[in-house]
Design a protein around this nucleic acid. Structure first.
Lengths: 127, 127
DNA sequence: TTCTAAAGTTCGTATGTTTTGAAGTATTGG
DNA sequence: CCAATACTTCAAAACATACGAACTTTAGAA
């Protein structure tokens, strides 16, 4: 088992952050970590999530977040505790994470509202 | 040539925006479009960019931006004029794009400063 | 110590996405 | 109609992602 690598704060990139958070599962994990202190471990998140995501897939998602510099992972006994690096990132890219998470919350709430009335609606303009 | 499709404002997602802007070429295109009114066409951007990016690749990048809802493309004669949809997006996800573009600028300026002194420096903590 | 369970990680493969040269499509001007 | 311009589409290779199976690490029990 290769040792966990975390990028130094200076090696964290905007592109890396955006790519990591452009996945619905990863942004949900990150939101859980940032929001409360719940879902700190891999299986903790697996239990909480409504969708059934395999362990191996979740492990890769945590790795992606870690290598993008968004979270820090530490082994505690048999489990892996994950925490956000939001304070560091806030210093390097002020306002970035709050704006993304705010937009994410807004979208989530909008979907909740939409789910009550119209089960599925698609639209697209042409030209 | 299939007609251009632009998502309606309600179908634009945070994940889609983040994914589109997680590519260095696309975020550079978007920055050009948002910043000045330069680089509005595909070949216009090709001339401005320092890297040599094939036309077909650029075309795909413009498509990705368009389908994420970030830009609007209109044919004017033989060329394609691209404009940002930032006003619409600002209404739907307030603060998101400004924060991303601000972080992008900060990173760009930092790279410019770094390029003068240390040509290449990598660091990573372990554990 | 050895066994077993729990929590993650890694590997291999199937599947999906991205890049790019070559060929194709609109549009304009001669 | 023909040539030039400015893209777009296609197809194949390169690269990335998902997930089951097998593996590693740690803790606690026997």
């Amino acid at each position: 088992m290769r040792p966990l690598t975390h990028p130094s704060i200076d090696d964290i990139t905007v592109e890396g952050i955006l790519h990591a958070l452009s996945d619905p599962v990863r942004v949900a994990i990150y939101a859980q970590l940032a929001d409360a202190d719940s879902a700190r471990t891999c299986s903790n998140f697996q239990q909480i999530s409504d969708r059934c995501i395999p362990k191996s897939t979740l492990s890769q998602h945590f790795r992606a977040l870690r290598e993008a510099g968004l979270i820090r992972s530490e082994r505690h006994g048999v489990e892996m505790r994950n925490t956000t690096r939001c304070a560091e990132i806030e210093q390097r890219f002020p306002g970035l994470l709050p704006a993304i998470m705010q937009a994410h919350r807004a979208q989530f709430e909008e979907r909740m509202r939409g789910a009550k009335k119209k089960p599925a609606a698609r639209k697209a303009t042409t030209g």
